[in-house]
Amino acid sequence: MSQKEYEKYYVPAQSPWPFMGACALFLIAFGAGNFVVEITRGKEGYGGMILLLGLVTLVIMLFGWFRNQIHESMSGMYSAQLGRSYRQGMAWFIFSEVMFFAAFFGALFYARVISVPWLGGSSNNQMTNEVLWPTFQAIWPLIETPAGGKTEAMGWYGLPLLNTVILLVSSVTCHMAHVALEANKRKALKGWLALTVLLGAVFLFFQVEEYVHAYTEMGLTLQSGIYGNTFFMLTGFHGFHVTLGTLILLIMLFRVLKGHFTPENHFAFQAGSWYWHFVDVVWVILFFFVYIL
């Protein structure tokens, strides 16, 4: 192959979308920073409006940016090398998400292995216990905090177990959709993908039901000490990621229905499916450490 025929790496010309994205993040961050204060301190202000404006801008930006990109991809401007850039970029993004969850899992492990036992007087911390909270008992799940707040622990059977099964099955159906796409079986692809989206939505429905149960009947809230904190932050951020993943897969479904993707060229679908498997793995770890153990 001579140099002239070398496949050129596509470097896009100027684009307004990233700058619009930066404006959107500015509005979101500034709006959220004010909104949080307004709702928790009962103040008047425009934080919520600014936040909403930012989110709308973000959605418009994503729509425009991805539309450009789909256009470029479908008119054959992309090379195999560019496809590798996208795949590697997605893989590193997922790694960053893993580390985000690692921070919260770290907090959970620290509380269970170090801070709660120490408050209960373990190793050389006997005086900590006797001077600060002599009646405090270090047991996990922490249903009574040192300050005396009481709650109930969430069991692992019932809804959480059902949700685990749902997510595991959805990972399989997502993989089946991918297999069908690569074999160019469009009908099977549509079926498996639609089923995956449905399972994601069912998971979220049950998750909401579990939260309602926890808040109204068990007295388990975000404020219920370190047990409630880690429970809601981990399951909450996971639920947020499931929501995103479901939306991504739903958009992929629309694109499949419009005839997008070929057995060779389907980066967006693959990225969505990787994201879904990642969310699934996080749940399995979460189910094990938050619910069972």
Binding site: T145, L222, I226
Partner: peptide
């Protein structure tokens, strides 16, 4: 929340 507050187990 009480991640960094001993009164809540953090």
């Amino acid at each position: 929340t009480s991640f960094f507050d001993a009164a809540g187990g953090g």
